[in-house]
Computed example of a mutant assay.
Amino acid sequence: MAPSLLGHPTRGTTGTNRLRRNDRWIAASAALRTADDPLVIDLGYGASGVTAFELAARLIRVRPDVEVVGFELDPERVATARAQLEDVRAGRSTFSPGLPVSFARGGFEVPLDGHRRPAVIRAMNVLRQYDEPDVPAAWASMAARLAPGGLLFEGTCDEIGRIASWVDVPAAGRPLHFTISFRLAGLERPSIVAERLPKALIHRNVPGERVHELLVDLDGEWERAAPLSTFGAKQRFLAAVAGLRARGWPVLGDRRRWRLGELTLPWDAVAPSQALRGS
């Protein structure tokens, strides 16, 4: 008997190149690069299979043996993505006909054939419609399907992929890190990411919560570094990150990642600290 499908259909919003920042992060992750079986799941890809195609096209550069499977609850979306895949196979798209991608119905249970377990599960813009108390169970359901050393990447981005944030969750189900990623050119203030925080944090941008303190401090350092705009947005962001570290924030990574507009911290540095009113 087929397993029950877990979750609710997403709004289906998708777009070309929308998830490029998250694609880049996954491509650099040890979860992918060191995996014995580099199987990657694009969970809740939406009304079009394009995000799975783009993910595979980017990951194959670092893991030629990668395989991407797109899962959606809605059978019509699966049929649409499979029709798109036929065009890819026939050479009627910009993607390689041999792109290692397939599509199937599935939700948080991540129903794979046999005993395979994914090295990576990507679930971007999936939990926005859920209530915050539902998030830990969703994380646990997905993360339980991971291979040893695997990671779930769950978060949110804007419609054109210029602002994104996500958490990485191991099999144990509690996030390890929180990452925000910006297109630095044209960035007015970093706290604009507040609108695109993961569901576990989006209601926590209030005084008394660590993620709120982070965004306030990051905005302050961004403003402090404004004179460096003469040398470009990257130099300004590097200075802002340096300022955060000087304030005592446990910023991870190095200048190579920061120059890309990425900022990563341990999850415990921003984890919710109090119950929501009415929860």
Rank of each mutant, 00 (worst) to 15 (best):
S4M: 04
P9L: 00
R11M: 07
G15T: 07
D23T: 02
R24V: 12
A28K: 14
A30K: 10
A30H: 10
L32Y: 14
T34K: 09
A35M: 10
A35G: 05
P38N: 05
V40I: 09
V40C: 13
A47W: 01
S48L: 05
V50K: 02
E54V: 10
A57F: 02
R58E: 15
R61I: 02
V62C: 09
E72M: 02
L73P: 12
T80A: 00
V88K: 03
R92N: 05
S96Q: 11
S102F: 06
R105C: 10
G106E: 00
P111L: 01
R116I: 08
V120I: 15
I121K: 02
M124K: 05
Y130N: 08
P133T: 00
A144F: 01
A147P: 10
G150P: 03
G150L: 09
L152K: 05
L152P: 01
E154R: 00
C157T: 13
C157L: 07
D158W: 05
D158V: 09
G161P: 10
I163V: 15
V167T: 12
A172N: 10
A172S: 15
P175K: 13
L176F: 09
I180C: 15
S181I: 02
L187N: 07
V193P: 09
K199T: 11
L201D: 11
L214K: 00
G220R: 11
W222N: 02
E223D: 13
A226R: 15
R236L: 02
L238Q: 04
A240G: 06
A246T: 13
G248V: 04
W249I: 00
L252Q: 01
G253W: 09
R255H: 07
R256I: 05
R257P: 03
D268T: 10
A269P: 03
P272E: 03
P272C: 00
